[in-house]
Simulated scan of single mutants.
Amino acid sequence: MRVARLRARLRGWGGVGAMAVVCALALAFVLLLPGTQARTPGGPALGHGHTTEATQARAGTCTDATAQNRSPSPASATGPAVQAIKARGYLSVGVDQNSYRWGYRNPNNASGALEGFDIDLVHRIAKDLLGDADKVQFRAIPTNERIPAVRSGRVDMVVRTMTITCDRLEQVAFSAPYFLTGQQVLAPRTSSVTGYDASLAGKKVCSATGSTAYDHLSADKKDGRLPASTDISTTVPNQLDCLVRLQLGEVDAVVTDGALAASQAAQDPTVELKGPAFTKEYYGVAMKLGADDLVRQVNRILEDYRKDGGWKASYDKWLLPTLGKESASATPPTPVYR
């Protein structure tokens, strides 16, 4: 019965959705991916190139509301981390391969290349560091493997809708923010769930292991901001697995970044965003602690990416259809460096 219902809903997705589900169910470990695909062309210049310099924050003063302001200022000087990448000849990057419009394999693309907003950013970093946008080795990494992959040196960086938080800053280094989003609830259109509120009482909610969504669910349930009867025990390696559980009827709602949820709602017309975003979060590029030269180089690249229209062109191509031009996410965040 559940399988029949899932098949019916997948017909609404089309090829992309079916591909994404297969990838999500199969991806329980790190996969080595090919890295040959086209870059996104530039677009009109933006007027958001202004940056401000903040005083160096002392240890112990970090709050998640300002965690995105703790990255070092941009610089072009190379150091050990950048030199190692140049000597190797390619950039190793952890990404997603099943997040529609962020990092996914388009079945209509004969080359099977990865596409999406995060993938465009990776190509831009490779072009600026190595002179060739295609000198990238992509590794598909589950949500809960993002930090271990960086810390172990399996990848040089992770560009995978990763929110900057104080806890994560103790484990990895982050670039300045490149995208603004917030947590939201995704549920069937016919559901009685109205958002991140009392309507979640008695409901089963899914989130990805190691995600900020689960962190909020866990903390809010302990503090009483979430109904005590809300079941948050369902966690999965990849966020898209939550959507599969939702389609199978195994959970009642999903909590994830609004930007990702909007893309999933675009894939499956039987689900929708419920209520407004209840957090304000920023995505950053994660790198190894101590790789300050690489972090500064990435921050320099992000500065240029915003100024020359590359960021705007990528947003318009991948995210404008789902988030719109009036969204707070439609403008790149203005960085504040430590």
Rank of each mutant, 00 (worst) to 15 (best):
T55Y: 01
R58H: 06
R58K: 06
A59I: 01
A59H: 00
A59N: 00
A59P: 07
G60D: 07
G60P: 08
C62V: 05
T63I: 02
T63K: 07
D64P: 14
A65G: 13
T66C: 02
T66H: 09
A67V: 11
A67T: 11
Q68H: 15
R70G: 05
P72Y: 04
P72G: 04
S73W: 02
A75W: 03
A75R: 14
S76P: 00
T78C: 06
G79F: 10
G79V: 10
P80N: 05
A81R: 13
A81N: 11
A81L: 12
Q83G: 10
A84S: 15
A84M: 14
I85F: 11
I85G: 13
A87P: 09
A87V: 12
A87I: 05
A87G: 05
R88W: 05
R88I: 09
Y90K: 10
L91K: 07
L91P: 13
L91W: 07
S92T: 15
G94K: 14
G94M: 14
G94I: 10
V95F: 11
V95T: 15
D96Q: 01
D96R: 04
D96H: 02
Q97W: 12
Q97Y: 11
Q97A: 11
N98Y: 05
S99E: 12
Y100S: 13
Y100G: 13
Y100N: 13
R101S: 09
R101T: 09
R101L: 15
W102Y: 13
W102R: 11
G103P: 03
G103N: 06
Y104Q: 07
Y104R: 08
Y104P: 06
R105Q: 04
R105F: 03
R105M: 02
N106Q: 05
N106L: 03
P107L: 02
N108R: 08
N108M: 08
N109C: 00
N109I: 00
N109V: 03
A110V: 11
S111L: 13
G112D: 12
A113T: 01
A113Y: 01
L114G: 12
L114E: 11
L114C: 12
L114R: 09
E115L: 13
G116I: 03
G116C: 04
G116F: 02
G116L: 04
F117T: 00
F117L: 02
F117V: 03
F117R: 01
D118S: 05
I119Y: 10
D120P: 01
D120R: 01
